[in-house]
Each structure stands twice: as C-alpha cells, then as structure tokens.
Design a protein around this nucleic acid. Structure first.
Ligand SMILES: [Mn+2]
Ligand SMILES: [Mn+2]
Ligand SMILES: [Zn+2]
Ligand SMILES: [Zn+2]
Lengths: 138, 138
DNA sequence: TACTAAATTAGAATAATTCTAATTTACGAT
DNA sequence: ATCGTAAATTAGAATTATTCTAATTTAGTA
C-alpha cells in the first residue's frame, strides 16, 4: 500500500517523464488528485478544492491540465451514466461501481470481475477495451 | 424475426397502452425509430430523418418524445463514451459494442456475454444494473 | 361540440466543455 | 544569469447537448 506522498511523487515523476512542462498549476493539481491515493474527480471537484486551498487556477487550465494528464497516461477518464467526465488516478485496467444516488465511483479491480464469454468482434474492427459499470442504488 | 411493420405496430400498441396520448408527432417518431427493427439513435439522428421526410417536428418535441418513450419503456437510453445519449429500440436487458471511430452501437445479446465473477456489492447499496460496453476501433 | 389536461412549440436558459487570442512562463541555448 | 521561443495559462466567448418557459394547439372524453 503506497502512502499518499508516494502517489504524489510517482505522478510528479510521470509528469517529468512526459513531454509536458512542470508548471506550478500542474503540480498543484497533481497534489490534489493524488493526495488521497486512488480517487475519482470531476473537473468541478478539482476546481472546488483549488478554491478551498486559495490557489488561483482558472477553470480553463483545470480542463487543459486534466485532459493532458489523461493524454499522457497520468490519469484516466471515465464516462458514467451521469453527464460529467470523471478523472481517475487509477490508470490500470479496471472497472467500476457507480452509485446513481451519490454519483460516486468505486473501483473494481480487474481480478474481482470475470467475463467468461464474449461474442466475436464484428468484421473489420478490433477490440479496444471493455468497460463494465455496475450501477448501484442506495 | 419480426418485420419492420411488426416492430412499428408493436411500439404503437405500447404507446396506446401507456398513459401518453397518441399524437401525430409521436407516431411519426415511432415509425422512424422502429422502421429498421432494432436500432440506436441520437436525438440528432431522429431530427435529421424528420427533416429529410419533410415532417415538421420541433427539436424540443423530439427530446420530449424520446424521454417520455424511455420513461414508458418503449425505448431505452444508452450512455456511451461519446457525449450524446443514444435511444435504443431494444428494451430487453443487453449490452453493446461501441465503435469509437464511427460512433455506432451494436447490440450484444445477454446470452452472448457472461460474467462469472462479481465483487460483493458495497454495504448499504443494492445492485441496479450492469452495463458492459465493448469498445472497438476500426 | 365543448372542455380540459396534455402536448407542442420557439426560443431562452443551463451545464459541461472547448475555443480564442492575448499574456505569461518554463526551460534549453547562449 | 539572460534570452528566445514554444508551451502554458488565462478570461471570457463560443459551442454542444439538453432542459426549461410560457404561450398555443390538440387529443380524447363527456
Ligand atoms: Mn463528484
Ligand atoms: Mn448517430
Ligand atoms: Zn477507477
Ligand atoms: Zn442496444
């Protein structure tokens, strides 16, 4: 089990290894994202934390930053049956519980879910990924 | 295998059995939706067909109608990794291929996919539904 | 035929996200 | 250390999908 500081350090190292420049805004956002280990955030969530911390980062930068962290494999984006994009600090292949009442995502590790039968992929296409969402209610 | 006319008749009958009034607009939209048997439509798709047919149905009505058909179990809504809602004439429990290049949905019948292992549902919540999307590329 | 709740409509409003174009910054080269 | 430049940030406008509003029309019933 990694500590939150280890998560942050690892993500900051990935940022350094990426073609992205290490800006104050990106470092602050990474610290927010990874400070609780694996987690799921909307842009709104991140922007709220930024305001609470008294940091001044514009909404456009939050969008830019999260999209570029996604493009560079530092976070992952998850679409749910609600209309916002979630950003996921867990970049491994995994699945989710989604609670419709509280709009929260909970990780399901790949090893804890198993698909034992799949239809054949339509001609001319190839498999990209499988996303399983287990919707919950309270 | 049902003919498209049979699909349309069945859906119009469901409309009659629902608390919704049978209006010209709803009948036209149902004919568009079910004219090719099982299919998936965005609001834009339906509105384009309406314009092509020279029908005059406002966009607000297309939204109202599709939402009410969904609420009354005549169609089903599907969220994908693209940002539009898809409406599905197949109201049975089933899953989907989603081609990211062409933004098209293809049904996967429940019997052709099998989950043999699921983690336990978090305390205090109950299972609502499982949605599997098999993302494809071309 | 008349009544009334429901449906339709055009356009305004909203929500999430992306774009624009001006300013600022990171960082490699001097 | 300073400079030059491509990249990043920013505020605000624009866009996209969808919902809301409130006036008008219609379906189905009495
Ligand atoms: Mn949230
Ligand atoms: Mn479409
Ligand atoms: Zn996750
Ligand atoms: Zn379907």
């Amino acid at each position: 089990m990694m500590t939150s500081n280890e998560y942050i350090k690892k993500a900051l190292q990935s940022l350094k290894n990426s073609p992205l420049k290490t800006t104050k805004q990106r470092v602050d956002i990474i610290k927010i994202l990874f400070s609780e280990g694996n987690n799921h955030f909307t842009v709104e969530d991140v922007h709220n934390k930024i305001e609470k911390l008294g940091l001044n980062i514009s909404l456009a930068t939050v969008y830019n930053c999260l999209n570029q962290l996604t493009e560079n494999g530092i976070v992952k984006s998850v679409k749910t049956s609600c209309n916002k994009i979630y950003f996921d600090t867990n970049t491994t292949s995994h699945h989710h519980f989604f609670c419709k009442n509280s709009s929260t995502l909970i990780d399901i590790e790949s090893k804890n879910i198993k698909i034992s039968k799949l239809p054949k992929i339509p001609n001319g296409k190839k498999l990209d990924s499988i996303e399983i969402v287990v919707n919950l209610t309270e």
